[in-house]
Design a protein around this nucleic acid. Structure first.
Length: 272
DNA sequence: AGTGCGGCCTGTCCGC
DNA sequence: TGCGGACAGGCCGCAC
């Protein structure tokens, strides 16, 4: 499901629920219902965290980070992962945490593409070291950076901005949306973009991610936040999921193509 | 090293 | 109504 705005929305809610001033949660226990997610749930490592407080809930790229005194529980939501509070286990709940105030926090994941990890020092881990800059941090992610990185890269620009080593958090929806707003064709090679186009792409990525965060992300089918809210950015989508419908700017029918195994939506006349 | 593809899972929708 | 196939917002590992 989730790209950066959806993960950030979940993070904000979890942070309030677990580690705000008036709510400090301690982990009293946990239950694993389905050990086999994308990687196995680290049962022994989690057991060592019983009795510890959740100090904060942070995010890096599309990863959620639950901070404890001994290290971080890392959660990636894959396509359909979700954290929700409930009294009882429901379908596709694979793990639950019992909290000191009596609440239970469940990890639900229909397709089981997500995973849960624990790390004493996540900044040293393999996945973390490969991550590119955060798209909303302008000191590290800007036109000059994107332009330099794109030289000699023979992949379509759409695949390039979805590469988490280049910039994190941009998935299939926001890649199409950002390129529409930048007026850049998804098909051109990364190596062919101009400085000006790099600038427009960076601005468009910032714009779509920031505006989506402000209204709770995008819900296409499964996604809902921890509190069960749907994201309303779906109403702002200019191209994603609109194949055959009129472009909202110029009324040309929106096209759908396959790129690197994923659907891309774009407007032939608005994007060059 | 960079690139493209298949695989991991379950659910839903479409056409026959 | 039932069935097969395609597709779904992510990422990894492998072969070239």
């Amino acid at each position: 499901m989730p790209e950066l705005p959806e993960v950030e929305t979940v993070r904000r809610e979890l942070s309030e629920e677990l580690s705000s001033k008036n709510r400090q949660s301690t982990l009293l226990g946990f239950t694993i219902y389905q050990k086999q997610l994308r990687v196995k749930v680290p049962e022994k490592k989690l057991r060592a965290l019983i009795g510890l407080k959740i100090l904060s809930v942070c995010r890096r790229a599309k990863y959620l980070l639950f901070e404890t005194e001994k290290g971080h529980i890392i959660s990636h939501l894959g396509m359909t992962g979700r954290w929700h509070f409930s009294k009882e286990k429901t379908k596709h709940d694979h793990l639950s945490f019992d909290l000191s105030d009596g609440r239970r926090l469940f990890y639900q994941d229909i397709r089981r593409f997500g995973w849960i990890e624990f790390s004493e020092d996540y900044k040293q881990s393999k996945w973390y070291k490969k991550l590119g800059p955060e798209p909303l941090e302008a000191e590290s992610f800007n036109a000059e950076y994107l332009f330099k990185k794109s030289r000699k890269r023979k992949v379509p620009i759409k695949a390039f901005i979805m590469n988490q080593e280049i910039v994190v958090g941009v998935g299939n929806i926001y890649a199409s949306e950002a390129l529409f707003r930048a007026g850049v064709s998804p098909k051109i090679f990364a190596s062919k973009i101009t400085r000006e186009q790099a600038n427009k792409i960076v601005e468009a990525i910032e714009f779509v991610l920031q505006s989506s965060i402000e209204i709770g992300g995008t819900t296409i089918r499964n996604y809902a936040s921890t509190r069960g809210n749907k994201g309303s950015f779906v109403d702002m989508l200019m191209v994603y999921g609109r194949a055959g419908q009129k472009c909202k700017k110029c009324e040309t029918p929106i096209r759908q193509i396959q790129q690197v195994g994923r659907s891309t939506f774009w407007c032939l006349s608005c994007q060059k």
